[in-house]
């Protein structure tokens, strides 16, 4: 994790270097620079244009959408947005997502850090087995568990409930959370502080909550954002485990609108719904982009 942050600031490192540069290196920067900017801008446009187009379309009437898909809306039809929020239930979907992801992420963070802390810093019989049990969860395809999972929840009466989704989100977020927190944080934190706290009579639990958790904060933020995005964007699990329309989460509601109506009906409203699903995540990302990138790529960098 620390290396991650250092790596992310290459310019600072190279600027700090002493200027012992040989002058005679053949220069080819000019042409290449134009070329590389051209290519890079092209891809940036390919990323942004579809989203901009959808944003623009969310303010248009059906007639305008069919007449000239790329033309600007003649008038900003905000009723698409209010229609999506109220008539198409996106408001309700949004709050369902908030409840499920809120519960899921809080649960994942508390339980995940507790498990990771004990596994990283205490030697006891079965430690390795439990650790590998958690890690192995990262490698199995979810699709294999999907059908039995449905019946586990059915038998417990948890299908189409908030609690059911929350507890499943926690279960499937634990492997990476435990792996990340064990290897990046709790194992590397200094032992002396924990020992001092213990001697001062803090108790094991007190040491964890008052000393170790605050020390691990950068890691908790990264993995927390990772889990917020992952659970907010989750589609497969609610699709299978939650068939009650009143409890649909945002992704599910959006997909349902398209699959059940086959894009028929009110296009402007559909695009407004798409924006309601898209914008919160993009805004969170733009605010926390460094942490998001670090959190999401951390697993790959090891």
């Amino acid at each position: 994790m620390t290396t991650q942050i250092q790596k992310a600031e290459p310019t600072a490192v190279s600027v700090a270097k002493t200027p012992t540069k040989p002058e005679k290196i053949p220069s080819e920067g000019g042409v290449l620079n134009v070329f590389s900017h051209g290519i890079l801008i092209l891809w940036a446009a390919m990323v942004i244009l579809p989203m901009l187009w959808a944003f623009m379309t969310s303010f248009k009437t059906n007639a305008e959408i069919f007449e000239a898909p790329w033309a600007l809306p003649t008038k900003l039809h905000f009723e698409n947005w209010s229609g999506a929020w109220i008539n198409a239930n996106f408001g309700a979907f949004f709050f369902n997502s908030l409840i499920v992801v809120g519960g899921g992420v809080i649960g994942t963070m508390i339980l995940g850090s507790m498990a990771a802390y004990v596994l990283a810093r205490f030697d006891f019989k079965g430690n390795r087995i439990i650790y590998f049990l958690f890690i192995s969860g990262m490698t199995f395809p979810v699709f294999l568990a999907l059908v039995p999972l449905f019946f586990v929840l059915k038998n417990m009466g948890l299908l189409s409930t908030y609690q059911g989704l929350i507890v499943v989100y926690i279960g499937y977020s634990l492997p990476f959370t435990v792996f990340f927190l064990t290897s990046f944080f709790f194992r590397t934190l200094p032992t002396s502080i924990a020992e001092a706290a213990l001697i001062d009579g803090c108790g094991h639990a007190g040491t964890f909550f008052r000393i170790m958790l605050p020390l691990a904060r950068p890691g908790l933020i990264s993995i927390g954002i990772f889990n917020v995005l992952g659970q907010w964007n989750q589609y497969l699990l609610p699709l299978v485990l939650n068939s009650d329309r009143d409890k649909f989460v945002l992704t599910q509601g959006l997909a349902d609108l398209v699959v059940s109506q086959g894009y028929a009906g009110d296009w402007g409203q559909l695009f407004a719904g798409l924006m309601i699903a898209m914008l919160p995540v993009l805004i969170v990302y733009i605010i926390f982009q460094r942490q998001v990138q670090a959190g999401m790529t951390a697993g790959a960098v090891k």
Binding site: T57, N233, Q234, Y263, L270, M278, L282, Y285, V292
Partner: peptide
């Protein structure tokens, strides 16, 4: 930052967007 945009979107959003 820009290139990373699609990565943070839900796959549902992406599928609906591209379907359109």
């Amino acid at each position: 930052v820009v290139y990373f945009f699609p990565q943070v979107l839900s796959i549902t959003v992406i599928a609906v967007l591209w379907g359109a």
